[in-house]
């Protein structure tokens, strides 16, 4: 029996790859912005500019939350999905 997920996977075999790349690119972007914030905060804290440090901290914290949230969408490891696929095939054969 074919289901929606299986037919989607067969129609777009590169989907996992694209998704993984997109997540990593986004994470690098977030980390890059955070490094920028940290550098600015260090320089401005030395100049007694506490509001800049506070604003960048809030921004950096939100970006970290976004990074953790993105990790939810990491595709499953290939081995697991293969096993799942095999199991499905086996069950299909049995049916």
């Amino acid at each position: 029996m074919s289901n929606f997920r299986r037919s989607q996977n067969e129609a777009h075999p590169n989907k996992t790859n694209t998704l993984m790349t997109a997540i990593i690119v986004l994470l690098i972007l977030f980390v890059g912005i955070q490094i920028w914030f940290l550098f600015g905060a260090l320089n401005n804290a030395l100049q007694d500019n506490i509001y800049f440090a506070l604003t960048t901290f809030i921004g950096s914290f939100l970006l970290a939350l976004a990074s953790f949230w993105l990790l939810r969408y990491l595709p499953d490891p290939l081995k697991k999905s293969q096993k799942k696929g095999n199991n499905q095939k086996e069950t299909n054969k049995k049916e």
């Binding site: 990593i24 994470l27 980390v31 955070q34 914030f37 804290a45 506490i50 440090a53 993105l70």
Partner: peptide, 26 residues
């Protein structure tokens, strides 16, 4: 790539923490 992405997530958290330390110290 999964481990790399997770490492980037960890790095992101550490950077946010570092920014927080600056605020607390100030």
């Amino acid at each position: 790539r999964r481990e790399f992405a997770k490492f980037l997530g960890l790095l992101s958290g550490t950077l946010a923490l570092g920014n927080g330390v600056i605020v607390i110290k100030a």
